[in-house]
Simulated scan of single mutants.
Amino acid sequence: MTHNDNKIVRVNQDSEQVDLIGLLLQLWRGKWVIALFVALAVVISGLYLSFAKEKWTSTAVITMPDIGQITGYTNVAIILYGDAKVDINDIQQRAITRFSGAFTALSETLQNQASPENLTIDAAVRGQSLPLKVTYQSNTAKNAQQELAKYIQQIDEQIANELNEDLAMNMKSRVSELEASLITQEKIAQEQKDLRIQQITQALTVANESGIKAPQEQQSDNLTQDSLFLLGSVALESMIKNESSRPLVFSDVYYKTKQNLLDIQRIKPDPANIHGYRYVMKPTEPIYRDSPKRSLTLLIAVMLGVVVGAGVVLVRNALRHYQPRA
């Protein structure tokens, strides 16, 4: 029984071997058919490569601007608010954040056009906000590089103008604030002067009523408002005349405010000295295109040609030797 089973297995194995050899022989006899399909697939792939739209991607890496690239903004901010209130690192962060937001908006706009353009911005290193990688895809390597540089420059100019407008608004607000402060200080100085004249006038009235003409006290520093009449009517009349003609007296704060106002009115921010980014890597001119891949396309064409050609050969032979059951 065991012997017979082994014999059956051996016969089945021989049958499978014969079938495999027969299959290979069929394919070999149909090699010209297979070669024809391979040639046809290569021709079709060649036509595809000739007419397919090429895609090239240029890449650039950017980060926050250097201190020197935002001097046009920081110098004005320091004049406006003072050195202690200006955080340069915060200005750099806000500049690149604005740049990233504006670039993302431009990317969405270009993607939603009738003829979409593929412009992207993303983190260059996973998990880190900076630096940023920006890319642009075009039909030629040179055009991809030039267009990416153009869009980066476009957004940079937009950010510079926005920051310049912010400065103009801040300057206008600060000028109004300083002018209001000067008016307040002048009003206070005038009120102090008027009060001083009123006090001397009151003392003169008391001196006249008391019949005091000559000074009764030589040290005026020792006199209070209530005893100021002791200077005598002659001296008090002279003091009133002097106080009326004397200019207003201001504190150092007034003159510092005045100087700050004049400094602000003289400055003229220049957008050319304001930038929202710094290149880590400038837009590259790609060496390899994204698609179509010539070698990969031809390899796939050859494989498909072989598979289709082999299938045709096997189906044809199977139909030739097909015998319906009686």
Score class of each variant (00 low, 15 high):
G68N: 14
L27V: 12
D194A: 05
G305Y: 02
V43F: 12
Y81E: 10
S251E: 11
Y48I: 09
I21M: 12
F229I: 03
V33T: 15
Y151H: 12
N273D: 10
L25W: 10
L236R: 13
T104V: 09
L20H: 03
A189F: 08
T257Y: 08
K142A: 13
L296I: 11
K150H: 11
D166W: 13
L110F: 09
P271L: 08
E157L: 08
M239D: 02
W28M: 08
N75W: 04
E157I: 07
D122F: 06
P131G: 10
T184S: 12
V43L: 13
A301W: 06
F229N: 01
L195R: 12
V42Y: 01
E108P: 00
N222R: 14
L230A: 02
E177R: 11
S245V: 03
S15H: 11
I152W: 01
L223Y: 06
S173K: 02
K193D: 03
P269G: 05
F250H: 15
K31V: 06
S220N: 07
R266H: 14
E16G: 11
S107E: 08
V42S: 05
M171Y: 08
A114M: 09
M239L: 09
I152C: 01
Y288V: 13
A272P: 07
R325M: 06
T184M: 05
G30Y: 13
T297R: 04
Q225Y: 05
E285G: 05
E147P: 01
A77R: 14
N112T: 10
G72K: 05
Q128E: 14
I21G: 00
L319W: 05
I240E: 06
E186C: 00
P283M: 11
S244H: 01
D263R: 13
I200P: 10
T224M: 00
T297M: 02
E217L: 12
Q13M: 13
Y48K: 06
L296Q: 07
E147C: 00
S115M: 12
R98H: 12
V134H: 04
L304E: 03
K7H: 12
Q26Y: 04
D270M: 10
S58Y: 09
I267E: 12
T97K: 14
L298M: 15
R94E: 10
G22T: 08
I240P: 03
F37C: 12
V42G: 04
P215T: 08
M303H: 01
R126K: 15
E179I: 04
E243Y: 05
R289K: 15
L148H: 07
P292A: 10
S176L: 13
V307D: 02
V11L: 15
A114V: 12
K187H: 04
R126D: 13
V312E: 01
F229G: 06
K55D: 03
P65C: 00
A189G: 05
L299G: 11
